[in-house]
Amino acid sequence: MANQINFDGLTVDQLYETFTEKEIHPSDAAVLVSSWIYENIGRTRRVFNFVESFPSVEPGCQPAPFNRTFHHADWVDGEDVVQAGQTTGELGFNERFHRIEADIDELAARIAKSFTCMAAMRLSLRRLLDEIRAEINRLHETTYDTRVSAPVNFDRIPNYMGVLDFGQYMGTTRFLDKNVSVWQTKNGTLVLPAVETMGVDVVIGPKLKNAAYFHRFVIETPEVRERFKEQVPLEELLELFGDVQVADGRTVRDVLKVLPAKSSYANLATMISEVGEREAAIVRTTMGAHSAISAALGIEGELETVTDADVAKLNAVPSRARTALTKAGINTVGELAKAEPDTIMRILDEQGVRAEIGDAAEWTAFANTLTNLR
């Protein structure tokens, strides 16, 4: 459109597409673009619309009517004969119990689906709240300084396209009661709203978590371990379990997209390790990610020291669990990566910290992925 804001030949729509092409979620991309525009242009009339969809009714989450298959016909003492098999006029114990089993299995599947739908709804609701928070912060900024009595006039939009390169992340701090991120770019030092980017949230957000979520899925799903005791062809695994959801609401197919289509692995542990190595390789080529990880983990110097980073800085692990691990002698990210989930559970049990075996599997796999950031 002719009346769209143009940044050195790039429209707002193209700017938005630039972020989404980097696999940033559409909701996060909208927050980042709007924050960037406001920071560089100033005051303008805004119209707020949600990017994250949140339908009032989700067709896939509406269960069909439940039809009970077991209907008990009362027996009469002295007349009815107890029997196992089915005959004319009598189902027998075997058929009766099989129908009860079928009803219980159907109810269990419906309950599991309900929890899956609730998890997806929670994820969408969180993104909606993030959008609202960003809009409230911008409104607060608009009304904060009432000394500005006239709109800002300018001859042309300044060219700050260097910000798309992110540059070097210097850290997050407080400025005028706001969280801001500081970046060193080719255009100089920029101070931007502390919104999530590809690098800033990499050690506490969803980035680098595919191996962790897949490891958790494997630990919590005995059918997978039973089926793939040795060789693990990716195509076969996806055919059997590809549509099963993992902890964050995505499917197994989603978290394994990083693997080559025709690949095969000696065992599940090798596959998990390969996912982590490929994730780390992607982040190593992401501008700004290295500095952000160093800052978040308190690393001095280059990323090859990530193995020695203090595990207490790893916010993906709950604080009580980190304390317990430190008391047990697991002080670094590298030591956590080498620990077995069973060992982690034993430590937590001894320290009185509640956790599931899936939690331990997720933490160790995530730590292992981080150690590949060299």
Score class of each variant (00 low, 15 high):
residue 1 M to K: 14
residue 8 D to V: 05
residue 11 T to L: 10
residue 12 V to E: 14
residue 13 D to P: 01
residue 16 Y to V: 00
residue 19 F to T: 05
residue 19 F to H: 01
residue 20 T to H: 05
residue 21 E to P: 04
residue 22 K to L: 00
residue 22 K to C: 00
residue 28 D to P: 03
residue 28 D to Y: 03
residue 37 I to K: 00
residue 41 I to E: 07
residue 43 R to A: 11
residue 44 T to D: 08
residue 44 T to I: 13
residue 47 V to A: 10
residue 61 C to Y: 06
residue 64 A to P: 07
residue 70 F to Y: 08
residue 71 H to Y: 12
residue 73 A to H: 09
residue 74 D to Q: 10
residue 74 D to S: 14
residue 78 G to S: 00
residue 78 G to V: 08
residue 82 V to L: 01
residue 82 V to D: 05
residue 85 G to L: 10
residue 89 G to E: 04
residue 91 L to E: 12
residue 92 G to P: 06
residue 96 R to V: 04
residue 97 F to N: 06
residue 97 F to A: 10
residue 110 R to C: 04
residue 112 A to P: 00
residue 112 A to Q: 12
residue 116 T to N: 11
residue 116 T to Y: 09
residue 117 C to S: 04
residue 118 M to S: 15
residue 118 M to E: 14
residue 118 M to Y: 07
residue 121 M to S: 04
residue 123 L to H: 06
residue 127 R to K: 12
residue 129 L to D: 10
residue 134 A to I: 08
residue 135 E to R: 15
residue 141 E to I: 12
residue 146 T to L: 03
residue 148 V to E: 13
residue 149 S to Y: 11
residue 151 P to N: 14
residue 161 M to G: 13
residue 168 Q to R: 12
residue 168 Q to S: 13
residue 169 Y to F: 15
residue 169 Y to A: 03
residue 169 Y to I: 00
residue 170 M to K: 15
residue 173 T to E: 09
residue 176 L to T: 15
residue 177 D to G: 14
residue 179 N to I: 09
residue 179 N to E: 14
residue 183 W to M: 04
residue 187 N to C: 11
residue 193 P to R: 06
residue 194 A to C: 11
residue 196 E to H: 14
residue 201 D to F: 08
residue 201 D to E: 11
residue 204 I to K: 01
residue 214 F to T: 05
residue 215 H to F: 10
residue 215 H to G: 09
residue 215 H to T: 11
residue 216 R to P: 01
residue 217 F to L: 08
residue 220 E to C: 01
residue 223 E to Q: 02
residue 224 V to R: 01
residue 228 F to N: 01
residue 230 E to L: 02
residue 233 P to N: 03
residue 235 E to Q: 15
residue 236 E to D: 02
residue 239 E to I: 11
residue 241 F to H: 03
residue 244 V to W: 04
residue 244 V to C: 01
residue 246 V to T: 09
residue 248 D to P: 10
residue 250 R to K: 11
residue 252 V to Y: 00
residue 254 D to L: 02
residue 255 V to N: 05
residue 256 L to W: 04
residue 259 L to G: 05
residue 263 S to Q: 10
residue 268 L to K: 01
residue 274 E to T: 02
residue 276 G to T: 08
residue 277 E to G: 03
residue 278 R to W: 12
residue 279 E to T: 07
residue 279 E to R: 01
residue 281 A to D: 06
residue 284 R to F: 02
residue 284 R to K: 15
residue 285 T to F: 05
residue 285 T to Q: 12
residue 288 G to C: 01
residue 290 H to D: 06
residue 292 A to N: 01
residue 293 I to V: 15
residue 294 S to D: 04
residue 295 A to E: 03
residue 295 A to Y: 13
residue 297 L to R: 02
residue 298 G to V: 13
residue 300 E to M: 06
residue 303 L to C: 14
residue 304 E to N: 11
residue 306 V to W: 09
residue 307 T to E: 15
residue 310 D to E: 08
residue 311 V to L: 13
residue 316 A to M: 09
residue 318 P to F: 13
residue 320 R to D: 14
residue 325 L to F: 14
residue 325 L to S: 10
residue 326 T to A: 13
residue 328 A to K: 13
residue 329 G to W: 13
residue 333 V to H: 04
residue 334 G to C: 08
residue 335 E to A: 15
residue 340 E to A: 15
residue 344 I to E: 08
residue 344 I to D: 12
residue 345 M to K: 13
residue 346 R to W: 07
residue 346 R to D: 15
residue 358 G to D: 04
residue 359 D to Q: 04
residue 360 A to S: 03
residue 363 W to Q: 08
residue 364 T to Y: 05
residue 365 A to I: 06
residue 367 A to L: 04
residue 368 N to Q: 11
residue 371 T to W: 12
residue 372 N to D: 10
